[in-house]
Design a protein around this nucleic acid. Structure first.
Lengths: 134, 134
DNA sequence: TATTGTTATACTCTATAACTATA
DNA sequence: TATAGTTATAGAGTATAACAATA
């Protein structure tokens, strides 16, 4: 391994900030925050049974989720209904409109990512290694 | 490029958090915060002429730097003297002890990073691409 | 008047603790 | 009593604005 390179953490975090800066204008055009998009993307994998489970899966606190879910629900992007079997629990899922929106945003982000990766040799290997590590 | 993968930003940020979690115990053993270590590492590249320039080079606000520099100076890890040619300016550099400390920490971090990268195929390509992108 | 560094203040993000409703 | 969700509050981290020293 190359012995004279910046710390991995520093490089990765710098790239992360760059990617987020790239995504932000896209999200803003769609009127969503980063966390709201993260929620839509997590729900796309499949519906979630409790808000606490969703919070954990995206690395957020359950209390942080609430205003985000309020907004997404108000805008008709998610469903959030009490579980008839245990009315303490809220069943969460994407609406058709929510699915459409998530796909539209992700597609724009993918295009921008591919642009950015153009600069890198070994970009297929980069993405493979990234998947292995996460 | 693989069409069914998580967003690059999500993966990169997740890896970044993992790397930081890995570095934190090392830094704690040395009694330094992440930002203090970032400052030592930036100064290792060579002395800096103004605090504002240092702040910008590490992506921090100049006001955030001040308590960090206060602490590093008090502990004898950096020099911070008014420039005789323009006494508004503080010349910043590592002391011998500061250099020693930075090298010791970086070496420990490198060892831990190499452990973590073991899990990934294509790790040389990964690091190359990461350098290209940052 | 402009610039470097510093201090004081405000703002944003996040987590902790207390509360409501169900079980 | 225990748990899911919610609300209220407090803390950390960060940025903005005002200030002091020097040019």
């Amino acid at each position: 391994m190359d012995s004279e390179r910046p710390d991995l953490g520093a490089m990765v975090m710098r790239l992360g900030r760059r990617l987020i800066a790239m995504e932000e204008p896209i999200l803003e055009r769609h009127g969503l925050t980063m966390w709201a998009y993260v929620v839509l993307t997590a729900l796309r994998e499949g519906p979630t049974r409790t808000q606490a489970a969703l919070a954990q899966s995206i690395g957020a606190d359950k209390t942080r989720l609430i205003p985000i879910l309020d907004d997404l629900q108000k805008r008709g992007l998610i469903e959030r209904d009490p579980d008839p079997a245990d009315r303490r629990v809220r069943l969460l899922g994407l609406t058709t409109e929510g699915q459409r929106k998530q796909r539209a945003i992700q597609s724009e982000i993918r295009t921008a990512e591919d642009d950015l990766l153009e600069d890198a040799a070994d970009r297929e290997a980069f993405v493979r290694a990234l998947r292995d590590l996460t």
